[in-house]
Write a protein that binds this DNA or RNA. Sequence first.
DNA 1: ATACAATCCGGACCGAGGGTCCGTTTTCGA
DNA 2: TCGAAAACGGACCCTCGGTCCGGATTGTAT
Lengths: 197, 197
Amino acid sequence: MPERRPRKDAARNRAAALAAADALFARTSPDQVTMADIAAAAGVGKATLFRAFGDRTGLIRALHEARLEPVRGAVEAGPPPLGPTTPPLQRVPAVLDALLCFKLDHRHLARALEGTESTSPYQAEHYQRWHELLRAMLEPIVGPSECGFTAHALLAAVRADLVERLAEREGLPRETTRARLADFTARVLRTDPGGKR
Amino acid sequence: MPERRPRKDAARNRAAALAAADALFARTSPDQVTMADIAAAAGVGKATLFRAFGDRTGLIRALHEARLEPVRGAVEAGPPPLGPTTPPLQRVPAVLDALLCFKLDHRHLARALEGTESTSPYQAEHYQRWHELLRAMLEPIVGPSECGFTAHALLAAVRADLVERLAEREGLPRETTRARLADFTARVLRTDPGGKR
DNA sequence: ATACAATCCGGACCGAGGGTCCGTTTTCGA
DNA sequence: TCGAAAACGGACCCTCGGTCCGGATTGTAT
């Protein structure tokens, strides 16, 4: 079953839709961008969107994954301090920082994702991947019984809507936010703040 | 302007609506309970709901506040370890534990609230109250620059959808979840786990 | 008791937006 | 070049939050 690849127009329209959605989401709050808007901006019929992505969530998820891919790659097989060769005590804060930066750079996107997952964001498989990664790194640090919860709690500290509030409503500059998260992480890991820097 | 109190039938219908909503939310996922459902279950017209609560969010918020009121009272003016006479190092974990227990006991409700706030839950005034309370308590512990973020991060650890996932999907028993949160809090405060017990 | 004004009731109605249908157009292997 | 499989797109449907307005209730003044 050679998984015959999609037709040329299908590929082109899919790309156009992703680009249009990205642009629209960047300009206004995601929950006031309708599927019809996206279709129009992409110069495409509405049904084409649904055929390509299934539903609204699928579209946003696809967009999110495309943008997140570099980060994921860097974590799974990149150089230190993100890559897998780094010891957990330095890698955990590095991964959280990377996640934070991603959400800062793509606020609209991350928020669109968490806001659209009809059910809680915790069932999204990408969440489960991050959680498992963190859990494994935390196990030697906080012990096997606590590592699961700790991973959840640390991820909760970089949830998109919280990050957005810090950046938008409280007006925290990027570097300040990163420093706060680093301090917080250090407390949880019981290390010295800035220990690796 | 003596704020003439509402008519008897208005009060009765309001109560009926709250009760019906509570029952329905308890039975199925909040996002598949429509306003028409609630009206029907309360034996009331749909417009009555909107007149009494403004909109869907208002209804859920009213319900939430009614149920949360005891906890709020205990924290604002109750006996230790929740009340204001307790020193921060013991009060912070106590408040978080109370919040966790509330969300465990009223999963559906808390989830309905966070899921309905059209915009992120962080603008809800009740969130701001909790945050300010925690922030003030944390200030002497973690310092003035970090206390704000730390308060956010700790509150994030008891967010309704996370709690629901722990309880429902991962099947953690109540006491286990409480213990994990206590451990996590202790790490953040740099105290010994179970220090106050 | 009675009448009257203010308030509330509730079901029909509206508009927006996610998702589908189906006749037409495009692609692509033979 | 040709024909079938795949994709297109815009009209259409349906659900659901929210509003409207004629009729019923309540409280009050006489």
